[in-house]
Design a protein around this nucleic acid. Sequence first.
DNA 1: ATGATAACTAACCGGTTAGTTAAACCGTTT
DNA 2: AAACGGTTTAACTAACCGGTTAGTTATCAT
Lengths: 211, 211
Amino acid sequence: MEPVLPSRGRKGDAVARILTAATAVFSEAGFGGTRVDEIARRAGVNKATIYYHIGGKETLYGEVIRSVIGNVAEKILAGVKEDQPPEEKMKTYIRSIIMTIENNPRMAPIMMRELASGGAHFPPVVGRDIARIIGTLTDILEEGVKKGIFISTVPFILHMMVIGSLMFYRASAPVRAKLEWIPEVVKQLSAGINEEVAGEIEKLILRAISR
Amino acid sequence: MEPVLPSRGRKGDAVARILTAATAVFSEAGFGGTRVDEIARRAGVNKATIYYHIGGKETLYGEVIRSVIGNVAEKILAGVKEDQPPEEKMKTYIRSIIMTIENNPRMAPIMMRELASGGAHFPPVVGRDIARIIGTLTDILEEGVKKGIFISTVPFILHMMVIGSLMFYRASAPVRAKLEWIPEVVKQLSAGINEEVAGEIEKLILRAISR
DNA sequence: ATGATAACTAACCGGTTAGTTAAACCGTTT
DNA sequence: AAACGGTTTAACTAACCGGTTAGTTATCAT
């Protein structure tokens, strides 16, 4: 019994286009502000096609959440090699989070809104991901403490510090660009997390925990 | 949905009740997810009363934003006295932000959602507030650098670090409590920013910038 | 070709929601 | 006590929006 070929799609995969459009609209307007018709319009697809392939608005949102903040632990922890010194592991952890956020510009707004609503739509995998990341961070810190190069601190607070700094920096870009009265120096900061910003945050975090 | 008693005391506080209810609903559900009828129900007021006193949903939201994140600079910078050493000023700045967030539990979700949507509803005063805060922070840092106790860094990034850490910590409380798989140690952290957490963040930030 | 099936669409449906209206309410003034 | 005006309300409406349906088109196996 060979698997059924799903490649029956004619003009490009509708499901992929729907998910892309949905990710964009949800990240811009939030769940409540999103209109299914708008997603259909941007995907170039009839609204009924969304219901045919995926399901209702809620299901669609769940899929978007899963694709955007599901299985992030894998990506973030992939680079942390066992034979590195803790300081290097720490740098890798920070840089991996930066890469994840930069490769996924839709992630910051979605994550922030989800957090604001108490993670009402977080799939189970998110909990496990957080657990894995905190676990690894705890190991790195412990190893550093044992080797006398890190101070002892609360891993979760440090994690919130890294994630929070980066997401707030990233998400504040449109505000920085738009608002009057903002100092010129601030306006000139890059929208994305470029090497200068990344290096600065990495430096500050490492200084915070280094002996 | 339990019925809300009319609480027909004095009529003057209708506006206050409306604003309180609106702040709650907007912070829980976001702009798109908020129903004006729900605000009216919680305020114990007929919907038309909202339109009579304040105006439409958009105007009401604007008022909420203004009351929640308008004129925060005053509160945050009030304690920073000119005759303190820069390290003390820095501590005051951090503690003031913590107090502001803790005294307004609705602030974190609203702020995060606003940031997620590019600050579409930020009133002009927010820009000026940010400018004032960044300005003062820049002064504190410069003074510290001059006295040889702080390293040179980008004030805005540091500000994002403080705000981001605190807001993420605060906003993640419901998620921490709810999700499975989250380490027990993390679950036991207090929902609010208590003295232990505040002290830890203050310590980390000061370590990050101290020579 | 032909029938079966998957993919897609235009048009529609009914509950919901922001916003309106006209009348009622009530303390104050005359 | 009647007129008055700011305030509140029940009832209403028009538009919106998530979801459905009936029907069409494309693809494939035989």
